[in-house]
Amino acid sequence: MVVESVRARAVRLAAVGDLPAYVYDLPGLRAHAGAVQAAMAGSAEVFYAVKANPAAEILRTLRPFVDGFEVASGGELALVRELLPDAPVVFSGPGKTDAELALALDPGVERLHVESPGELARLIATGARLDILLRANPDLPGEDVRQAADSPFGMDPDGLAACVRLLRDAPRITPHGIHAHLTWGRHDAPAMADLARRVAAWALPWLREHLPEVTEPELDLGGGMGVDYGAPHTRFDWKAYSAALADLGGSARLRIEPGRSLTAYDGWYVTDVLDVKRTHGRHYAVLRGGTHHLRTPVARGHDQPFTVIHRATSGPALTGTATLVGQLCTPKDVLNRNAEVDGLRVGDLVAFGLAGAYAWNLSHHDFLMHPQPSFHYVDGP
């Protein structure tokens, strides 16, 4: 459902031919981020994952509601330092270059997450004084961590052991704990909390045994709080998650890094219908723009939820099941497949919801060289 301020802006943009457009509801974002902040208070620090949406207006809006920002590249770090020079930052990401490791010397970088023994060795060779977490990819029980175990991220026990050996001769590098981001896109808060307990049950004894100098351990649990694109009115249960984490807080300083689950709900990709057609028994609505602007449904393999804003009063009307596609010369340019529409006409607007994260910044903008969308940040009625 499109909030009224976004609907009104979409209609005005259509009237002046300024579509496609991304429209963000900043009051809605503040309300949601504030609710997450209140829910997590006392259980875990909240660092926003900049990769989800690095727009300057989004970062500035979130700043009062988060403890800091998680960055995964030198570019993201430079952006946050420019926009919010006093904001705490943790620096993650595989494949850090020497130049990026040098950027980690910025005093605003509270923790650097070490991905491998090789990365740690390069860090030690700089002679820098840094605070780090070791990114772990332990072989924990449960199918919910298989995607992490089959990924290149972090270290298994052998890699961690190699880091311990390196740290013995590296007094300028101070380890503080473990970073373990082991799942993505989980909607179930109790299941996410259970994963956090399994991580803690492994990580805290490991730290006591291998890095006993870490007397005040930190656990960064990453993100992964899911957004259900098939049920856009539902949200992750932050209160339940926080309550379940509370019993871990006495033994470790906890941090989480949500991205999508903070910003997805308050962004819309708005466009208009260029054509309606029937071919080989299927109905299609061809939209201006497409997945070169909003790649999310292709990247994640889902149908993007949408709302039709009816404007056209004449011409053929499409009612029934239709597939919503864009302008690209590829059959993969599909935003929603086999959707139910009622009286959809050329000239009507389509507002795709849950487009506030991993949307424009994830997309292949220059394919076919269509015009880029405009961007609008609605801050009031």
Rank of each mutant, 00 (worst) to 15 (best):
R235S: 13
T126G: 07
L84V: 12
D342T: 15
C329R: 15
A252H: 11
A339F: 02
H365M: 10
A201W: 06
A231N: 15
G42V: 07
H233K: 12
E143R: 15
G75Q: 11
A240Y: 03
L83C: 08
T291P: 00
D247W: 04
P94F: 07
F153K: 06
Y48R: 05
F352N: 03
L103M: 15
L344Y: 03
A49C: 09
N338G: 08
E100M: 13
F375S: 06
Q304G: 00
Q37G: 01
M1I: 05
D379T: 03
V273I: 10
L254V: 08
Y229I: 04
A322N: 09
R146M: 10
L207C: 10
P331M: 07
G315Q: 09
P94C: 10
G185F: 13
E257I: 04
D67Q: 11
L294E: 00
F352Y: 11
P27M: 08
G159A: 12
P258S: 13
R197L: 12
V270Q: 01
V16S: 13
A189P: 05
D86V: 13
S363A: 15
F47C: 09
R165A: 13
D194T: 12
G347W: 12
N336G: 05
V46G: 09
T61L: 02
L294R: 02
D169Y: 08
Y284G: 04
S261G: 07
L120M: 06
V298E: 00
V6P: 00
T183C: 14
V298W: 01
A201I: 08
T97C: 10
M40K: 12
S43M: 05
E45N: 07
Y284C: 02
T279H: 12
G380T: 13
V2T: 14
H376D: 05
L160I: 09
S363L: 04
L84G: 12
S363F: 08
A31H: 12
T271H: 00
G347K: 13
M369D: 14
A41F: 03
F367R: 14
L84T: 13
F65G: 06
T271N: 02
L103N: 04
P212T: 13
V23L: 04
V80E: 01
T61W: 00
H210M: 13
H364D: 12
G320H: 06
L262H: 10
T330D: 04
R9H: 08
Y229N: 11
F47I: 05
F47T: 00
A180K: 10
D275C: 09
H365N: 06
R165L: 12
C163G: 11
L101F: 10
L167V: 09
D272I: 00
T174R: 15
D98Q: 13
I309S: 05
G230D: 14
E257W: 04
G127R: 04
A201L: 08
T61H: 01
H187Y: 13
L195D: 06
T126D: 02
